[in-house]
Design a binder for these strands. Structure first.
Lengths: 223, 223
DNA sequence: GCTCCGACTGAACACGTGTTTAGCATTAAA
DNA sequence: TTTAATGCTAAACACGTGTTCAGTCGGAGC
């Protein structure tokens, strides 16, 4: 057996090539293109993974594993204050992984879903920490707020990217920087000063919906 | 585009069927499926439109025209206060159109782009109105804020939908209602109370980026 | 009557896809 | 050396796609 390049298994080489192509072109990328990238025949891809779907699933697993380890590495990096997005801009090494996550988010795949879940979980912790430190205002529903903050940040980023795709999609750092360049000011303005001058909207809503979901971490998983 | 398929041209019937199928299944929907929906042979679709791409383009035009007219109809409906999203929840008649817009947003197509442009333009007007009426705080960059508000609202909605696709995608009203059910509280909370208790983040940013882009109606960074 | 023309269709074409098959080449075991 | 197994490939298969082509149908104008 000849393992052509470095210390990687051919199987791993194929998987990594797939992650990259999926990140770049979306999950519609052909098996043939992945095989070419890996310097291998299309048949070998199937031989190793059984089918394209199973290859996709294995890429999902690999990316999730990488996310988990990256999460442990930078567990307390955004201790206080820093936008959750700065985490991206800091790490170009995670570029393919993040491209993959964005694609999976766009596709509604499992990676996107569990990625969001993890970020929401993190956000709950961070906001709780911030509230206790007196830096962040408390919310009537911390879980809902954390989820909204994550969805809003990532959704805005995704929308901006799809509407105005960058020339080099692998440059996640520059991509996020560009996003922050146009959106950071209105974002922190909103986050520190709010938008309305009156409490009317909020009070009216609280009047209409009389149940403050007091429970802290309980997420009712409603659809 | 309301008609019982009686007095419509076959060409229009095909176009409307295409808009619906594109909205439901995305732009990967096959010409054959569209032809079947319109009760027509695939060849006729090509015969009338030349190619699938031209059909797509014509659907774009039709939807944009409808948006323009719908905009004139409800020009001042969200005069003050109402979330921009409530406009959707009110109008089930626009369901196919909105589904199409969401698909086009997801695809980065021209419809999505000009739709965003129009909404941003509207948002500029509304926020200006709100500021003058004393209901909305002024921003250091009104244009950037309007853009951010639109992108954030639509991006969050899109993300929620793709991550948790509804059983009936044509029920835009229920779809938006479901979205608001989980996101409205954190949203207006954020919009009326803000998130941070300190002005530190904002002031630091304003210190780093010393150019107030043109018409800053707000107070400059203090301390 | 006739021709002409446009709407319309069934069948095919060209192509890209994921996948299968048969077999080659190399290595490890017997 | 023989045998088996494994990594790997070229070629083909089955299928879905957008599109083309030859031709039918039906009505309007002569």
């Amino acid at each position: 057996m000849r393992s052509a390049s470095a210390d990687q298994t051919t199987r791993e080489r194929i998987r990594d090539a797939a992650v990259l192509r999926f990140a770049r072109d979306g999950f519609g990328a052909s098996v043939r293109s992945i095989a070419t990238d890996a310097g291998v025949s299309p048949a070998l891809v199937i031989h190793h993974f059984g089918s394209k779907d199973e290859l996709h699933a294995e890429c999902d697993e690999a990316v999730l594993a990488e996310i988990r380890s990256a999460k442990n590495d930078t567990i307390d990096e955004l201790a206080s204050g820093q936008s959750i997005l700065h985490r991206f801009a800091a790490a170009d090494e995670y570029a393919p992984m993040l491209g993959y996550v964005l694609r999976s988010l766009q596709d509604g795949g499992p990676v996107g879903r569990t990625f969001i879940e993890q970020m929401v979980e993190d956000a709950v912790g961070y906001t709780k920490h911030g509230v206790e430190a007196g830096l962040v205002k408390p919310s009537r529903d911390e879980a809902a707020r954390a989820r909204y903050l994550v969805l809003s940040a990532l959704g805005t980023l995704m929308l901006e990217i799809t509407l105005d795709p960058p020339e080099d999609p692998s440059d996640i750092s520059g991509l996020v920087r560009g996003f922050l360049a146009t959106s950071y000011l209105p974002m922190i303005e909103l986050y520190t000063e709010g938008f309305f001058t009156t409490r009317r909207m909020l009070d009216e809503y609280l009047l209409y919906v009389p149940d403050p979901p007091q429970d802290a971490a309980g997420e009712p998983a409603s659809e």
